[in-house]
Amino acid sequence: MARLPIWLRLAAGATFAFLYVPLAVVVAYSFNDSRLNAEWVGFTLDWYRVLFADQEMLLAARNSLFIALVSSLAATGLGTLAGLAMHRYRPPWLPLLVITPVAMPEILLGVSLLVFFIQVLHLTLGLLSVVLAHITFSIGFVAIIVRARLAGMDESIFEAARDLGANPWQTFRLVTFPLILPAVVAGFLMAFTLSIDDFVITFFTAGVGVSTLPLQIYSMIKIAVTPEVNAVSTLLMLLTLVLVAAASRMDRSFMKGGA
């Protein structure tokens, strides 16, 4: 292996710093003893105290968790099926249908679901509309991860199972599913992370009384920035960190799926 030139190391190091310094600033200011978020005054844990006493923030956190859990479970089911279908039966329309909602600018999906829910379904925007929207954009990620896993497997296993007299359901339950399980779990975690994180589509599909953490953060940034935002951001970063670590342990293709 050739030694890497020093300028390359420096350039890469600078980019890594660019990636991490802002986050460090957010974390540091969550301990700043000043309401104004401008200059450093002193260390305090008050903003975490404020955060845990903030009923609306807690409610938003509860909504976020609920939406993420329900939507990612549903998306995992549907996405796994989509991944299997794309691998096994290769219907030409499915990849397009699965990938396009992911590939388009988010605002387009948000807007179209808003119009659809109101104008066609006459649905009151709320938890249900947000969950449906999140499932829609999560399916693709799960499907991609599952298909990547299937593509890397030896087809002869499934043939062997069939030759031994297993019906399709038995083949799936006894052979395919255990083999793709890590990818399914990784897909679930990915969908969960995406749902917890989503702002744009939630922004268009959430209604009365339904706020999620990102929506709450947005309105705090827009209206009244106090270091409480930093505190909630810091905790949210910790949570996603744990989730990402878990997902990447489950399946390396998670990283590729993120790409």
Partner: peptide
């Protein structure tokens, strides 16, 4: 990239 993008903008 796993932290919320609003947080990263806010930074």
């Amino acid at each position: 990239f796993a932290s919320n993008f609003l947080i990263r903008v806010y930074a």
